[in-house]
């Protein structure tokens, strides 16, 4: 009979689901419909083989991270499982470089001391000390970049961002968590059109996702809309224009809402520009990152414009 290893304890699973097995033995796992629908009992497999049924209906990004529905998982072999995001142990990383990307955003490159699996667009926690950490998205791509890259916006009175900007030096060692989050590119539908919308340092995950998709040979249209109130708030403009030159299916659309910009920018709120250009988003995969109000509004508007909720990945920060 298969054993389930959870939180250092082994439980024998006698033809039950992982959920029933663990709850019957006094382990508390959040659950609701118990019929494979609501995904409340989502868990993550650390090792072992997951039955196909246990991942049916999950977003591909969750499948790629070995998530499964505990209520629908009848294991045939031993399985080590955990609740999502409980295993985010700390890893040391060395600061390789710190570069101003614009007036308020710093590009921070880090080299972890041990192998660091991640998907471009996921996020990590960066620890200032044991009790203070902030979440930053990864702008780097594992198959392209040999370091991790974060885009840190200096937040007025922000404890961690100001520490990074004022005190962190090249060569310092910092603690980071493992990568998590489901805002990343998954191969398998190379012809699907992709829309990415970001404001401010919300460009970080999108910059990673775009380059990851292109690197993996994505064929469908990829449109990246980056919004700011002023031109000075944008960054990586030249790098993105170069990328668009090199890849005919990639379009970069910088949007400026306050000042009237030169002709090679669009004027307006980023979401308004998107909806004007792309009123029909049926079949699109959509990534939304940045200002929480923009992300929330864009999530609903993209859904109304025809994108399936399963295909909308949102990361407000």
């Amino acid at each position: 009979m298969p054993n389930i290893l959870y939180a250092g304890q082994s439980y024998t699973c006698e033809g039950q689901s992982v959920l029933d097995c663990l709850t019957a033995q006094g382990v508390s796992i959040p659950a609701s419909c118990r019929a494979g629908s609501c995904q409340t009992c989502l868990m993550c497999a650390v090792s072992g083989t997951l039955p196909k049924q246990s991942q049916r209906g999950l977003k591909p990004t969750l499948v790629a991270q070995h998530y499964f529905k505990a209520c629908s998982c009848y294991p045939e072999t031993d399985l080590e499982v955990q609740l999502p995001n409980t295993a985010l142990g700390k890893i040391d990383a060395q600061v390789v470089s710190l570069d101003a990307l614009n007036n308020e955003i710093i590009g921070v490159r880090l080299r972890p001391v041990s192998p660091f699996p991640y998907h471009a667009g996921q996020f990590i926690n960066l620890y200032q000390n044991d009790s203070t950490a902030r979440c930053y998205s990864l702008a780097s791509v594992p198959s392209i970049d040999d370091t991790l890259t974060l885009h840190v916006r200096r937040v007025p009175n922000g404890v961690v961002s100001n520490w990074i900007a004022d005190q962190l030096k090249v060569g310092d060692t910092v603690a980071i968590s493992a990568a998590s989050g489901d805002c990343f590119y998954v191969a398998g539908q190379p012809a699907q059109n992709i829309l990415l919308v970001g404001t401010g340092s919300g460009l970080a995950p999108l910059y990673g996702i775009v380059r990851d998709a292109l690197q993996q040979g994505h064929q469908g249209d990829i449109g990246l809309y980056h919004g700011s109130t002023q031109i000075a708030g944008l960054y990586l403009v030249e790098a993105l224009r170069d990328l668009a030159q090199a890849h005919p299916n990639f379009h970069y659309i910088p949007c400026i809402s306050d000042e009237v910009p030169p002709a090679d920018y669009r004027h307006g709120m980023v979401l308004d520009v998107v909806l004007k250009d792309l009123p029909d988003l049926k079949g699109y995969r959509v990534f939304l990152c940045g200002n929480p109000n923009m992300v929330k509004a864009a999530q609903q508007e993209a859904f109304f414009a025809g994108a399936s909720l399963r295909d909308i990945f949102a990361d407000p920060f």
Partner: peptide
Amino acid sequence: AKQKAFLT
């Protein structure tokens, strides 16, 4: 997800 459970 809740609505999916309800419709199911």
